[in-house]
Design a protein around this nucleic acid. Structure first.
Lengths: 144, 144
DNA sequence: TTTAATTTGCAACATTGTTGCAAATTTACG
DNA sequence: CGTAAATTTGCAACAATGTTGCAAATTAAA
């Protein structure tokens, strides 16, 4: 994980690479992503950070991070939107988010399984696939 | 598809099998599901049916249909929730929804691909899978 | 350090989802 | 068929979530 110093350093370079100003809100939101071992949704930021974040700023920050390829969305069957950090090989124009997601039914956590391959899907004739999203639900390592 | 008469008949038996009263709202919502060749979200009902549905009734009807296994949800990366009709073999306690979903980037439609198998996913050690959701996005037959 | 560009926070608003309750509709049953 | 019981609906009121414009604050550039 690294020292607090190193994390701050890493966050700074992520933001600078994306040509974004290094601000307190952005730094703290990225810290929360790095500390959490799973996906976060909008309401988590207000909870995790107390009253200190303005709702609007969180919405705009997450949207900016999405645009720059710093985070990605994870599909859900409810109205919440979950976000997770992209790996370092991702950038605004080049994504390597080809991994599956796992949602634990016990702890509710959603994590990215980077080691697990996305399966090939044999579609019916006439369909062209651009992207495959896989979300497996079950019981995770820690909850077993 | 069948005549209007036959559809009404079919809807009646779906509702009776689930021990639900056959009401006008429920009948019309099921009709919309049957006529549409894809998944519907909440706002579609207000659009498709003009002003005639009360918002609250639509929410409650969809929740009831979910509870009874008449419809199922489809994962999305936005805040909307998409619903589609289950096949006839589904019921409150016994689901056969093991199919993948396809979202067309052109027409925006989401459909169930019943013929296509859900892939086996090889999870890391320590994870137990109960359910696998797959959503493929790309271009559908009609838009090609 | 000063200026220009970016970001933030507030207010106000729009949309989406929920709850309680009385009126209306549907079902069950004589 | 007609009545009583059960279910469903619609309204009002509210709660939660997401959006926009704009002035003040912060950050970057010189």
């Amino acid at each position: 994980m690294g020292t607090k110093q190193q994390i701050t350093e890493r966050i700074g370079s992520i933001l600078r690479e994306s040509k974004l100003s290094v601000t307190e809100t952005r730094t703290r939101i990225l810290e929360l992503f790095m500390k959490s071992n799973g996906a976060l949704e909008h309401s988590d930021f207000e909870k995790l950070a107390g009253q200190s974040f303005d709702r609007v700023t969180v919405y705009r920050t997450l949207q900016t991070f999405l645009d720059k390829g710093i985070i990605h969305k994870i599909p859900t069957t409810d109205t919440s939107v979950r976000y997770a950090l992209c790996k370092s090989e991702c950038s605004e124009h080049h994504h390597h988010d080809h991994h599956i997601h796992f949602k634990c039914e016990e702890c509710g956590n959603t994590i990215c399984l980077d080691e697990t391959d996305v399966p090939q899907i044999q579609l019916p004739k006439g369909y062209a696939a651009h992207n495959v999203e896989v979300v497996v639900s079950g019981v995770c390592k820690s909850c077993k």
